[in-house]
Design a protein around this nucleic acid. Structure first.
Length: 606
RNA sequence: GCCUCUGUAGCUCAGCGGACAGAGCACCGGUCUUCUAAACCGAUGGUCGCAGGUUCGAGUCCUGCCAGGGGCACCA
């Protein structure tokens, strides 16, 4: 079955090979906070065990209480709430905290360890340790922050998956940005990632698209043929028809609609790829529905489901009530092929093959996901609009009906997105109309033209998938501190500016003495070291927006320091200046990496 | 009706069962002789939709309401 893949491989060379993980980053010791919190938790657990062994604490199973960064300054970098043990240990939280701290093994990264009421253990990272991380970071953020959770594993992200019937819309754009960001984060977590695009080209929609183009073409030839209401009305098909007429003249006058469908698919796909490339997105593989028909996979899936006893022929589903039966009878349907999905928790059964013998969308969808599972990905994430929620459930039931475990497949559901602008008269936001008149936009191309690729990527990413997103086109256009895009990029630009100036003066950071750095700079390093945790959380919880929030927070730590900590200034001693230049080298490195993780550019100037 | 998402400052939104609920914007007051203004400093601003419950501890978990979005095809 593995030999029956039907994808075109996109011309991209920068991706990791899909099957060969020989050169994947190997598990290695790294020094991010991602490990520090784990090490602190382990140390606390061993302290507790030791206290139990000595009889200072009663025997109980030690619950997992994670250490977390406190909200407030002055409470250290990691806090452990010992209150959670009070009941089990039958001691006051402060006493327990004392017992733990007294027995805590030595930790090279730990500086001050304090106990605070009502029972927190606050651990501060030692300054020396932070200073060492600056040089470590300079060996490359990609390596420095590389997690080991995905090493040796293969992940697939299926996203966009818009049918080639028109341009990429605002909704697809959110999907594209979130999917690609997740793919980048998975790569940062060590996975070999494949970006896949699945599209339906076998169904009725593509037939109508072909017929629509055919009519547009005939109109170009001067024929007076109307375009029915249920056909594609978009102006873009007129452009395609005009090109066809120019290239082929009248030779296609008697061609079948299939010829036009193929042409439409080809042109639309070229357009879609161009649009996505403009925001720095490329898929590795394209998988089409038609291939599932040609290979016969849809029928083998149906057979397998039938053998497992989940398929039946009927005019209506088995649990239909009187109203539904009356409804179906009125329509006069012949028997169709049903999937008994209600057995798997669905609210009703679903039609797999219509009474006219044509499969519904669901059957190839199940076949596609079976194929995906058979390709052996450790995780396969599907980015879908929330309007596909029910459909995704049915596919899941279908996979179970095949006797397969759908566990590797996860879905990120994106809530709706719309472009809005402020309407002064109404005193409220107003949806941008779905028309193509000047100033209105509803496609990715329009969005990019009016703002920028970077702005589109950031604003589409910086929102929880669970939240609806109003893309405020006026705000996104603004080049001011109202716009986080420039706030973040400016951090990189400012670093780049220092190095331009330093180079001009022949000043470098060779032999920098990092002990000359003070609390301000170390505050930045502390924050920067959280990146490992952020990537881990983004990947394991499927929350790629976390990286956007973090980038903004880190820029928020950076700018005040930049304002205060100068390098090439008459009053800064040369040795101090060297140390600071080294610090800004690390800053520049991490901002470049963050922008790369978000698929944004890192401009040298703005 | 059923499923699902959302409701936190005037606006847009963060917030891992933990300490006094945070940013940005807007508004108000300051800061460009320095590598620095797409920036910085300061001030104002809150019954976390409502009501119960679990917990030593709830914006966070549970139940029920209220309000808004989306989905519940022999469409894709």
């Amino acid at each position: 079955m593995l030999s029956q893949w039907h994808w075109q491989v996109a011309p991209t060379s920068i991706r990791a090979p899909l099957l060969d993980c020989a050169h994947c980053p190997s598990a290695k010791e790294n020094s991010t906070l991602e490990q520090l919190n784990r090490r602190l938790e382990a140390a606390i657990e061993s302290a507790l065990l030791s206290a139990q062994k000595a009889g200072d604490l009663p025997q109980f199973e030690i619950p997992r209480i994670p250490v977390s960064p406190p909200k407030r300054a002055g409470q250290g970098d990691w806090a452990y709430p010992a209150m959670g043990l009070a009941r089990l240990a039958r001691k006051s939280p402060l006493d327990i905290a004392r017992l733990i701290v007294d027995r805590l093994p030595t930790l090279d990264f730990a500086g001050k360890i304090e106990i605070a009421p009502p029972g927190f253990i606050n651990c501060t990272i030692a300054d020396d340790y932070l200073r060492k991380q600056i040089d470590a970071m300079l060996t490359g953020c990609q390596d420095f922050f590389q997690l080991d959770i995905g090493v040796g594993k293969r992940a697939q992200v299926e996203f966009v998956s818009a049918n080639p019937s028109g341009p990429i819309t605002i909704g697809h754009t959110r999907n594209a940005v979130v999917g690609d960001a997740l793919a980048r984060l998975l790569e940062a977590a060590g996975y070999a990632v494949q970006r896949e695009y699945y599209y339906n080209n076998a169904g009725n929609q593509m037939i109508i698209l072909g017929k629509s183009l055919q009519l547009r073409y005939l109109q170009q030839l001067g024929e007076d043929v109307p375009l029915p209401d249920d056909h594609y009305q978009g102006e873009y098909l007129v452009d395609v028809a005009r090109d066809l007429a120019e290239k082929h003249g009248e030779s296609l006058r008697n061609a079948g609609w299939q010829r036009f469908r193929d042409e439409a698919e080809r042109v639309m796909f070229a357009w879609i790829k161009r649009s996505l490339a403009a925001i720095n997105i490329q898929h590795d593989a394209f998988f089409n529905e038609t291939s599932l028909f040609e290979s016969g996979q849809i029928w083998s899936v149906l057979e397998a489901m039938r053998e497992n006893g989940h398929i039946y022929q009927a005019t209506h589903w088995e649990g239909a009530d009187a109203d539904e039966i009356a409804d179906v009878t009125a329509k006069g349907y012949e028997p169709a092929t049903w999937f008994r999905s209600s057995k798997f928790g669905d609210e009703k059964d679903r039609v797999m093959v219509k009474s006219d013998g044509v499969p519904t969308y669901t059957l190839p969808d199940i076949a596609y996901h079976r194929d995906k599972l058979e390709r052996g990905f450790d995780i396969a994430v599907n980015v879908l609009g929330t309007d596909h929620f029910s459909q995704a459930q049915v596919v899941r039931h279908g996979i179970r009906a095949l006797g397969m475990d759908p566990a590797p497949i996860d879905v990120i559901f994106l809530q709706m997105v719309r472009a809005v602008r402020w309407n002064k008269r109404l005193g409220d936001f107003e949806a941008v109309k779905q028309s193509k008149r000047a100033g209105d936009f509803d496609t990715l191309d329009d969005l990019v033209a009016m703002t920028s690729a970077d702005a589109v990527r950031y604003h589409m990413l910086a929102r929880s998938p669970n939240s609806q997103l109003d893309f405020d086109v006026d705000q996104v256009v603004k080049q001011s501190n109202e716009n986080p895009v420039y706030y973040i990029q400016n951090a990189y630009v400012r670093c780049a500016g220092i190095f331009r100036e330093a180079a001009g003066r022949g000043f470098d950071d060779d032999d920098a003495d990092l002990t000359l750095l003070t609390e301000s700079e170390l505050r930045f390093v502390r924050k920067a070291l959280e990146l490992g945790n952020v990537i881990e959380q983004a990947v394991t919880q499927y929350e790629p927006q976390k990286i956007a929030f973090f980038a903004h927070e880190l820029a928020g730590v950076f700018h005040p320091i930049y304002d205060e900590v100068r390098v090439l200034h008459s009053e800064v001693p040369a040795e101090t200046a060297k140390a600071r230049l080294r610090f800004y080298r690390a800053c520049k490195s991490i901002f470049r990496y963050l922008l790369e993780l978000m698929g944004m550019s890192a401009p040298e100037r703005m």
